[in-house]
Nucleic acid binder design. Sequence first.
DNA 1: CGGTAGTTTGAACTACGTCAAGGGTCGTGG
DNA 2: CCACGACCCTTGACGTAGTTCAAACTACCG
Lengths: 227, 227
Amino acid sequence: MNRLMKPGARERETLLSSGLLAALGVESVAAMMEIAVIGSLPARQILFREGEPADLLHCVLSGYIRVYKLDPDGREADVELYGPGDLIGASVVLDGGRYAATAQAAEPALIARFDLKRVRDIANRRPDLAVALANALSAQLAKAFASLSNDRLHTAPQRVARYLLAHCSVEGKATSFRLPYQKSLLAGKLGLAPEALSRAFSMLRSYGVNVRGRLVHIGDPEALRRL
Amino acid sequence: MNRLMKPGARERETLLSSGLLAALGVESVAAMMEIAVIGSLPARQILFREGEPADLLHCVLSGYIRVYKLDPDGREADVELYGPGDLIGASVVLDGGRYAATAQAAEPALIARFDLKRVRDIANRRPDLAVALANALSAQLAKAFASLSNDRLHTAPQRVARYLLAHCSVEGKATSFRLPYQKSLLAGKLGLAPEALSRAFSMLRSYGVNVRGRLVHIGDPEALRRL
DNA sequence: CGGTAGTTTGAACTACGTCAAGGGTCGTGG
DNA sequence: CCACGACCCTTGACGTAGTTCAAACTACCG
């Protein structure tokens, strides 16, 4: 569990096509590869906790990482869910502060870690890295804004419908696809209790949505869009 | 209305102490000052709309700017509220994309605008600017995460209590302070309808909170913290 | 002093969280 | 391959926080 190692061929390839490294020049890529450490995490493993001094930058290679906040009585609220290729936004703390949330592997996962002090050093010398970080963060800020407004403006069935439309990609025609993770995770991502997600799905049946396990069939995307 | 001008002495000073420029080296500051354009906005003026191609970076000098998202039927959800010294996060789009939300002056305001293409150019040459942008964005991402979890974990009175505690600064003792903007704005920032904020305030009366206009008196901070 | 915008209060409604129990599904081991 | 068991998901019943609509009230500005 949590074995540490230098990146092998497979990991290098995944990293190269990840959001962060894809935009960098060869020298910056080399510098980052140099300091990358790969870790393999069992399900439920914690990467870092809210409030801890931030010393590592994390990037997902495979699996999903759940980032959440705790309240005093121990209840959890997911704030973001990261998949393969994603930079874990809550771990970008270049100013030497603390993690703003807790990160946990939602399933067995592979991640790359970078020492933040050394990332800072590289970013201070090589603008392409700093700009890439800024780009990743601005995209994530946009996603967070979308989540906030989604929570505040839309009902559970509407949120689920939007999620489905955003993830089935095809326009107009009926489609099927597989949820990338289990429903309780999706519920958390959408700011719902698992029961509410379940009810939303059954409400959407009358709009042509059929669910069996992780398989979702969408009969009429247009009907969903009109919700 | 919306007069454009080069920064004068006052504006330069405010800009220098703003979150973004404060951390930069002298040369980067000069480069940014060079391209800064000051604008004075009447209340309710729109700075940019969601979906428009992003061509300007904005920084608040005085007043408050509300950033929100619209849903198809025209309802609005505030996602962030920016005050003096703040970089408007939704306008940091270095990759040439589009604004993720709409920005509107909540009251008469003074802002600085920077041409994004030129900001990109500077950031690509001077790492301190790119790093400063990344820092600002990571702080804003943390704030967005806090808002999300706040919405999902806490009731209206709790959210208001936390806001008050975070803004009265003094520890332990009774205090008074003035809300920096009107209550309907605060309601939006906390994800509440104005009516709900009003009810939350009247509920907090029994915890030693008294409100008259924009003046808030907090009798017992400890009682609030225990909420 | 009057008007407009902001705020408060009330009443009805609804969406969602919570608790509790009953099914499915999947992976494991026989 | 089938059977078992654990975990996840579903369904029901209930309580409640917060929205919405409408109307009265208050503060601020001309």
